[in-house]
């Protein structure tokens, strides 16, 4: 069995979730990596060739691939598909956008966001925002899969030495066009990629008070999130939302401040490695999932936490 992994890359660098996708692919068979892009594609292809487990890198260089638009990328994957039993991508914005399109073109039901590989046909994937784990077996002759990066330790960045082969442009119907990208200028990491996430809830009382979290987030290199209650109350914008209807995060450390722990919030963060809860209500459900709980008024605890982190 040979598996093709769509590599998500930017500015000549591989995105870490792609290394997790390679790790998942290695459980299935020989791994080839597809690096499609333009200008920076050579550097990315060389980086992909160094990934342990990858035996061949397919490099596709064309202007149409510069911004990873789904339409041309899917056409390329469909053209390459006959040589492979499985096509994988990480559950990144690119993978989630492209892989289902490929699946439909090949008349395959995709298997999204797998968290484990049982065998060549059988995979585990979270459903209901991770409140249940489904083991599913595919009857399709080819499998199209996206990989939940948090569930597979990424392969190391170096150690392999794959050959690099050029593949031809598969063409583009031109129905979509890249206009611009505004990537967050914040020094802070994005919520779904952050090692540490600090979220505020209704207990923050207003948007202004969220600034109490800023210096702590700064100190810990953390992303700032919020519960749906805080978003609904208008304290912070919707893209802060962690939960079933917001972002699903699984950082090394999750700090919940003034969050009671509604089901739909827990669904978005309970896979975090270490959970800390600070809440003045000792019966708050958040304490049932927290590794460390502090029953305290957040308006006292946050300045103390800031001072304590700065002290050492």
């Amino acid at each position: 069995m040979t598996v093709l992994v769509l590599i998500d890359h930017e500015n000549g660098k591989l995105k870490q979730p792609s290394r997790s996708a390679v790790a998942a692919a290695a459980k299935l068979g020989d791994v080839h990596a597809l690096v499609a892009g333009h200008e920076d594609v050579a550097a990315s292809a060389e980086a992909a060739a160094k990934l342990p487990g990858v035996t061949k890198v397919l490099k596709a260089d064309a202007a149409g691939y510069a911004h990873a638009l789904a339409e041309p990328l899917a056409a390329l994957l469909v053209k390459l598909a006959p040589g492979y039993t499985h096509l994988l991508g990480a559950s990144t914005a690119v993978g989630k956008n492209v892989m289902p399109r490929v699946a439909a073109l090949l008349d395959v039901q995709p298997i999204s966001d797998i968290s484990d590989v049982i065998d060549a046909d059988t995979f585990v994937r979270p459903i209901y925002a991770g409140n249940a784990l489904a083991t599913v077996k595919s009857a399709d002759s080819k499998k199209i899969i996206t990989v939940r990066a948090a569930s597979f330790d990424p392969v190391p960045a170096v150690g392999g030495s794959a050959t690099i082969e050029d593949v031809e442009d598969a063409g583009d119907t031109g129905v979509s066009r890249f206009i611009s990208a505004e990537l967050s200028k914040s020094e802070r990491p994005e919520l779904t990629a952050a090692r540490v996430v600090i979220s505020g809830g209704r207990g923050m009382q207003n948007g202004e008070n969220f600034h109490l979290i800023d210096p702590i987030a700064e100190k810990l290199g953390a992303a700032v999130g919020a519960s749906r209650a805080a978003v609904d109350a208008g304290f912070v914008p919707n893209d802060y939302q962690v939960g079933q209807t917001g972002k699903i995060v699984a950082p090394e450390l999750y700090v919940a401040i003034g969050i009671s722990g509604a089901i739909q919030h827990l669904a978005g963060m309970k896979d975090s490695k270490v959970i800390v809860a600070i809440n003045k209500d000792e019966d708050a459900p958040i304490f049932q999932v927290a590794d460390y709980g502090l029953v305290a008024d957040l308006f006292t605890a946050l300045p103390e936490l800031k001072a304590e982190l700065e002290r050492v």
């Binding site: 914005a93 690119v94 890249f178 611009s180 990208a181 505004e182």
Partner: peptide, 8 residues
Amino acid sequence: VDGGLETV
């Protein structure tokens, strides 16, 4: 998208 916004 991951890390911000993209317009197409």
